[in-house]
Nucleic acid binder design. Structure first.
Lengths: 103, 103
DNA sequence: ATAACTAATTAGCAATGCTATATATCACTT
DNA sequence: AAGTGATATATAGCATTGCTAATTAGTTAT
């Protein structure tokens, strides 16, 4: 879902996503590695949620593979955002009824 | 973390946990099955976060295996609650910067 | 030439979640 | 006594997933 969020913001590519996660990802996503992100991108593309176009090498380094959301990807992102809200709500219900005793 | 929360509230056993999740677990945990919960309980016990005691069969059905938190389990639950807050915060950062464009 | 940065790829392992089934006990009905 | 349904635990087996680690390759600067 987070990768779909990032790609939804603007067309981007794997290395940039990793850099962005490393700088603005906080404690949780600030440590993302290639071996984690690239396989997710392949799965998202295989599932039809994102599509890629190759761009020849410009200023620096190898050729980039730019991704953007498909229509199906936009729909999936909407569903995931709904799911995420439900998920946080459900977990926090259990957390809330615990904290009284625990904290 | 959710199972540790439930066990922290009061000593309980697998079947009761599953029943509780099915009734109060909402959309997300309302569908929990034995094959999901029991292996998690075994892992939590193997990791030393919970301990069990057997109780002979009382009113109905087989003998129950009651679980409660160890000291290590209480510590782990605290860490997980902190992690959970960080995690939600980090994800919501990305969600927030997406929603402007997307929704 | 080489170091440093950009960029993508993939092998391989361990952890995890879930489906599905099996087992056993007890209470109640027919 | 046989069967049904609720209670309760256990586990085989599969697919998915996350991560470590290493490989390849192009560009820029020293």
């Amino acid at each position: 879902m987070v990768l779909l969020c990032l790609i939804a913001q603007h067309e981007t590519y794997g290395y940039e996503i990793i850099s962005q996660l490393n700088t603005t990802g906080g404690k949780i996503f600030g440590n993302a590695k290639e071996g984690t992100i690239y396989p997710i991108l392949y799965r998202l593309e295989a599932a039809g949620y994102i599509q890629s176009r190759l761009a020849s090498s410009t200023l620096n380094g190898g050729s980039k593979k730019y991704y953007n959301l498909t229509e199906s990807g936009h729909l999936m992102l909407q569903e995931l955002l709904v799911f995420w809200n439900d998920f946080v709500g459900c977990v926090n219900n259990f957390v809330a009824s615990t904290k009284k005793n625990e904290v």
